[in-house]
Design a protein around this nucleic acid. Structure first.
Lengths: 164, 164
DNA sequence: ATATGATATTTCAAGCTTGAAATTTCAGGT
DNA sequence: ACCTGAAATTTCAAGCTTGAAATATCATAT
């Protein structure tokens, strides 16, 4: 009864011999499953959303603060998106927002003391969840996967290199 | 000047020795980049969204039709979500929705003739885009990546096997 | 000093996504 | 026939995401 239920793959049952699409769907499925689990656990146990965690994680690694634009680039999301997420973090006292002393257009976001303390706990849980989900891969497999994804990243950069 | 710009990685600059998190972020980045490119190209060139394409793709492989619940499971999204996406596809005449003859609760969605014709073009473009983005990986690399992602899927199924 | 183009940010409408509540129907047992 | 729990679906509020338009500021050339 300890059957490990296999995970359904998006568009499971594909019959075409389009290996590249199959590979993409498998990649998408793995990412989606992991992301949804993390999202759900953050919501259930910490009452926080993944985008807010992402912003806090970025700020935690930049104690000097980050501008909205830097956050947008670091997180691969739009500017307008960052504005909204940061606003609620400011409202909840996890982040402070101050005008840049050197550039009147930019504002600099920083974790508050409260934000730093809360984030430490979140990051610890996050790390444990990832570790558990990858537990089935040994050191070599992780290393190979990491390298292959690096090759994929390079391939993506070669295809329409940035401007399309 | 034909520099292949490298792709920024989410939370790039991570210094911790948390290899598992690094692997996860790389996985997430690759998936995000591919997904956003497909999404943008569908929007720009075909005026369609990715969720709508996903539904059409599922229906294309099930000419006999699918219930909303089957679509929800196949696409890894919620029931309510499928309802909304199918509604606009019905409005646009790509999909027909009929009550199930065997179960009064269920309704069966099918591609219309128009839907099938349009989808053929979409699928062709989709396949080409994926192929181009994976062009930097040779046959062996693709095969290894596919297998490693399979191992990851198994690992995910082992961690909290379905009910958490 | 000023005009101009570039940059940083915010605002906003449209669309996706979820989970919970409500509705309808089914299937089994009495 | 009737109850009751299960299953399929829809509705809805809340939140994320984007891209385009609008604002404000900077930097540079004149």
């Amino acid at each position: 009864m300890s059957e490990t239920a296999s995970i359904r793959e998006k568009h499971d049952g594909e019959l075409d011999d389009r290996g590249s699409v199959r590979l993409w769907l498998r990649l998408l499925t793995c990412t989606t499953v992991i992301e949804k689990r993390i999202k759900r656990r953050f919501a259930d146990r910490y009452d926080i959303t993944l985008p807010r965690f992402d912003v806090m994680a970025a700020l935690d690694r930049h104690p000097e603060g980050m501008t909205m634009g830097q956050l947008s680039q670091a997180l691969l999301v739009s500017n307008g998106n960052v504005t909204g997420v940061v606003q609620v973090l400011v409202r909840d006292r996890y982040v402070s927002l101050a005008p840049s002393p050197t550039d009147g257009r930019a504002s600099v976001a920083r974790l508050t003391q409260l934000g730093r303390e809360c984030f430490a706990g979140l990051a610890e849980a996050h790390h444990e969840w990832i570790e558990a989900m990858l537990a089935g891969l040994d050191r070599d497999q992780r290393s190979q996967l990491h390298d292959l994804l690096g090759a994929l990243k390079d391939s993506l950069a070669a295809d329409d290199g940035g401007k399309e």
